[in-house]
Amino acid sequence: MTAMDRYSTREGTVYEQVQASAEFVELRRRLRGFVFPMSAAFLVWYLAYVLLATFAPAFMATKVTGNITWGLIIGLLQFVSTFVITTLYVGYANNRLDPVAERLRLEIEGNEK
C-alpha cells in the first residue's frame, strides 16, 4: 500500500492522519521517553551540585589529593556527565529516532506532491 492510499481515504489533513498513526505515536513515545527523564536527571544532578556548593562549602573545599578538592572533582564530573549524555543522545537519536522520522517524512512529502 502506498502512502497515497494510506492517507487519502481517511479524514483530516495528512498531518492529522500521521499524528494519529501508530508509527508516529511510537516515535513521540521514544523521543519523550528519552529526553524527559534525561532532562530531569541532569537538572537534578546540576541542582544537587549547586546546593552542595552553596550549603556544604566545607565539604567541597576538602582536599582529596594534593590541592585537588571535592568541589573541583564534582565540578569536573558535571563536564563528564554533560559529554556522556550528549553522546548517549546522539546514539539513541541515530538508531531509534531518525529511521522512523525519516520514513514518516518521506511518506508525507511524497504525499504532498
Partner: peptide, 9 residues
C-alpha cells in the same frame, strides 16, 4: 507536532 518530530515540510 508532526513537523517538529519528523522534519516533514
Amino acid at each position: 507536532e508532526v513537523r517538529s518530530l519528523t522534519g516533514a515540510g
